[in-house]
């Protein structure tokens, strides 16, 4: 059996005396959509921040594509192939939609930086390629008309799509989506689900998703991991998780 794309093993994250993640282990298989659910404060976003290098975990291991990445700087993990979106949107407000997406095409090392600054022939060729790719992604999202707009001029749902587009631009194998459907209408949620499935089938990307809308999660995911108060209480296929008494208890107890 081949190693999962992402495998988290016995991960602990403490902030002072508070245990945010308590010995969590989980995996995300290549080509799968894995969901991470749980009541508010369960540690889902903390888990994302550990995986993407925004936090340095207290202990435990995070292996991605066969490499240990726990504690590596965020930009290195991103370059290793992990892209993400944020719960509260993290777009670049001063940049156009097109530029926002283009930023996903990172520079390769500091030689890339120097060449980029001096505009060497190679870097100019790379720039052209990246721009063409950004246009492709805009086309894929159906947002070509909006390329020159600033993010703030778009409705919320489309801003989420721009952030998604930037993650696609990163050529990553695994995309972490933090509440991609939050604040969306039913129609927008449907469009986002379709988009995720289309990306998986067309681009072969894998997903790890945090989402509160349980029906959407049940329909979309191949596997669901449930956290509660920093602990994993269930892990399995949607059907099995749905009927797990611990999950039901957590949701009834957790949601007022």
């Amino acid at each position: 059996m081949t190693e999962p794309l992402l495998s988290v093993d016995s991960l602990d994250m403490r902030f002072g005396g508070i245990v945010a993640l308590d010995h969590i282990s989980l995996t995300a298989e290549k080509g799968a959509i894995t969901a991470l659910i749980g009541p508010n404060g369960a540690g889902k976003t903390t888990m994302f921040n550990c995986i993407t290098g925004m936090y340095r975990p207290t202990s435990g291991s995070i292996r991605f594509a066969g490499r240990e990445v726990a504690g590596r700087p965020a930009f290195e993990i991103a370059r290793a192939g992990v892209a993400r979106t944020f719960q509260n949107l993290a777009l670049f407000p001063g940049l156009t939609v097109f530029e926002n997406i283009l930023c996903g095409a990172y520079l390769k090392g500091s030689s890339g930086l120097l060449q980029g600054a001096l505009r060497s022939r190679r870097s100019r060729r790379e720039e052209h390629e990246a721009e063409a790719e950004a246009w492709d992604i805009l086309g894929f999202l159906g947002m070509e008309d909006l390329a020159a707009s600033k993010p703030a001029e778009l409705p919320y749902g489309q801003q989420k799509q721009v952030e998604f587009g930037r993650a696609l631009m990163q050529k990553s194998q695994l995309v972490l989506l933090d509440e991609p459907m939050a604040g969306m209408s039913a129609g927008e949620k449907k469009a986002m689900s379709d988009l995720i499935l289309r990306v998986r089938s067309d681009m072969g990307k894998s997903f790890l998703i945090v989402e509160h809308d349980i029906p959407v999660v049940m329909e979309l995911s191949d596997k669901i991991v449930v956290l509660n108060f920093g602990r994993k209480i269930a892990d399995g296929e949607p059907e099995a998780v749905r009927n797990d008494p611990k999950v039901i208890a957590a949701y009834i107890g957790g949601e007022d």
Binding site: A74, L95, R166
Partner: peptide
């Protein structure tokens, strides 16, 4: 330039830039 673009992006929003590599 791309470097200029990434500098503007970084100045705009650190954590987003980090996540974008």
């Amino acid at each position: 330039t791309r470097v200029g673009l990434l500098m503007r992006a970084t100045a705009d929003r650190h954590e987003a830039a980090m996540a974008a590599g």
